[in-house]
């Protein structure tokens, strides 16, 4: 990536880039490199500003394209783009995503645990079960449920091994 593109990227992070430059940036081959650079700078900025680097997995390019092309699809997806993640920094992520939307970015893609498209309508409006924020008693109760269920699904035809594995993995740190 040449210096001119880096300059554009930097300006973009400060919301000062002009449309033509951003279009040029997004049309570059090697978008992975652009994305990596963006994330790296974003992390540095977060560290400097003492914010949790929650945007590691957010790919903003699609949202930027949408904004440039005058689509409001990204904004419409605002409510469903916040998937269950089970991380304690969920709310800081929400705050950052909201901020990103305000400046024309979107978190439309890149979340590892986002629900399947067919499940998004069901997920909308359902609060995230903040498992990491649970106290020990609450975690124990949830763990009891998960383990009991894991025993049952070992009974399902064809899934004996999955039943084993679910039982063991439900007791670990997965949830």
């Amino acid at each position: 990536m040449d210096d001119r593109l880096k300059e554009t990227l930097s300006a973009m992070m400060d919301d000062e880039a002009d449309e033509l430059s951003v279009r040029r940036l997004l049309s570059q081959e090697g978008q992975d490199e652009v994305r990596a650079q963006f994330q790296s700078w974003q992390q540095m900025r977060d560290l400097i500003q003492h914010r949790h680097p929650a945007v590691d997995s957010i790919d903003v390019s699609e949202g930027v394209r949408d904004v440039l092309e005058g689509h409001d699809r990204a904004r419409n997806q605002k409510t469903v783009a916040l998937p269950p993640t089970g991380k304690s920094w969920l709310w800081s992520a929400v705050a950052m995503v909201t901020l990103a939307l305000a400046v024309g970015f979107s978190a439309g893609t890149g979340w590892d645990s986002s629900p399947a498209p067919s499940e998004q309508s069901a997920a909308a409006g359902v609060p995230e079960l903040a498992i990491q924020g649970m106290d020990e008693q609450q975690r124990e109760q949830l763990s009891r449920y998960l383990l009991q269920h894991a025993q049952h699904n070992s009974v399902s035809a064809g899934h004996a091994s999955m039943g084993y594995a679910r039982a063991v993995s439900a007791s670990g740190a997965g949830y």
């Binding site: 269950p84 629900p115 079960l129 679910r166």
Partner: peptide, 14 residues
């Protein structure tokens, strides 16, 4: 317990 949903793999908790 709090209310809400969570998913891991194919397993859903609500």
């Amino acid at each position: 317990m709090p209310s809400g949903a969570s998913k891991i793999g194919a397993t859903t908790v609500y």
